[in-house]
Amino acid sequence: MNSSGLSARIVAITSGKGGVGKTFVAANLAAALVKRGRRVLVLDADLGLANLDIVLNLNPKATLHDALTGQCAIKDIVLAAPGGFWVMPAASGLIEYSRLTSDVQGELRRIIDELSGQYDYLILDTGAGISDLVLFVASLAKEVLIVATPEPASIADAYATIKILALMQQRTSLNLVFNQARNAADGRKLTEQLQQVVDRFVNTQTATAVRLVHLGHIPGDPAVGSAARKRQLLFVQAPDSPASKAVAELAEALDAPAKVSHCAPQ
């Protein structure tokens, strides 16, 4: 806990496979949570190829990297995003930050600790893959949300991510969101299928079984692409589009206390 005594719910968004909609979910989920009255900050933890600022059409003067090197105070980096949430942007193309060093670890831990005193939710948008950086960022979050699409490669990568998080971080609960899914039933079926394989190959190796929570699905929606091309936030630009409505339901599922999945690493 930080000095203020308050503590945000920290949610890491990850997927294994790239390009499945992590950043889309992070930004729009944040806006939907704001609409529910929450104070939300999205931290761009894709330290190698950050582009949350591009998606949100922001023009950062300083980034997370300036905080990591101690050149900037956190409050001078955080920007207001359309949708009413806050953003901690990161720089792109800094290859040295695609590797995790113990200095970066310590600084990230400190920054997240400081931020968690000021918001209800901290959403950590990770990069693709299961690098040690992605796994470290996930380890800083009490809750993990895995984004997958119904595509086989995405399912396989989501499974590998689940397995690693279960075995290396002793997660007992993981949230799943199916993006570009036809309907909720499809998403549920995919989650069940994953759970069966997890029960058979992962839960036999862990002290406590991992439970997958199907948090929601988002349909493929042309409105997503057209908002993206205008560099606008879908949830603001087309609040009545099917994808926006699905994101609102997702926010409700996450924000309703009964459905919360706490899965702290031990």
């Binding site: 119904p150 086989p152 399912i155 396989a156 499974y159 590998a160 397995k163 690693i164 279960a166 075995l167 290396m168 079926k189 995919l190 299928q193 994953l194 069966q196 394989v197 058979r200 190959f201 992962v202």
Partner: peptide, 19 residues
């Protein structure tokens, strides 16, 4: 830490293909 075997992959993906 957690290599995914061929067995796991085929169990994971087979039913999807059919459905």
């Amino acid at each position: 830490a957690a290599p995914v075997s061929f067995d796991e992959k085929s169990q994971l993906l087979d039913p999807f293909g059919r459905d």
